[in-house]
């Protein structure tokens, strides 16, 4: 599934990385704990998180995560957007809860990491 399809399912707004909307996503990891994100080693991964600060992007940079959805109606800061752009990260903002977002993406066929 492409990120642009995910944006549609989640009724999400693209904050940055519009040029990467055709990236293929196969797996989703949902976490607000960055140490857990750092344990993941899966390609074509989408991170769902409600944690909106610069460490969300730093962690993604270190963990080679290039696709992020911010759930629970959280907004990305300018600092986050700048760092995300530097790291070729596509970032979406979504007003749904984590549970609803996960449910919709699972129903659409995306896979868990474990």
């Amino acid at each position: 599934m492409k990120i642009k399809d995910i944006a549609e399912i989640l009724n999400a707004k693209v904050v940055c990385g519009e040029q990467f909307l055709n990236r293929e996503i196969s797996h989703v990891f949902a976490s607000d704990l960055m140490s857990d994100v750092l344990t993941i080693d899966t390609e074509n991964l989408l991170l769902l998180t409600g944690l909106t600060n610069i460490q969300t992007i730093r962690t993604s940079e270190m963990a080679d995560v290039t696709n992020i959805v911010l759930v629970r109606n959280k907004a990305a800061s300018e600092e986050m957007i700048t760092l995300a752009k530097e790291n070729r990260i596509v970032m979406l903002e979504c007003s749904y809860s984590m549970f609803k977002s996960c449910g919709l993406l699972y129903q659409a066929g995306l896979q868990p990491v474990y």
């Binding site: 607000d32 704990l33 140490s35 857990d36 750092l38 344990t39 998180t49 600060n53 460490q55 969300t56």
Partner: peptide, 16 residues
């Protein structure tokens, strides 16, 4: 913890 850390996972992550 607000920064997404502090759950007691860091040193294990390093070791691994």
């Amino acid at each position: 913890r607000e920064m997404g850390f502090g759950a007691g996972m860091g040193l294990m992550n390093i070791k691994n």
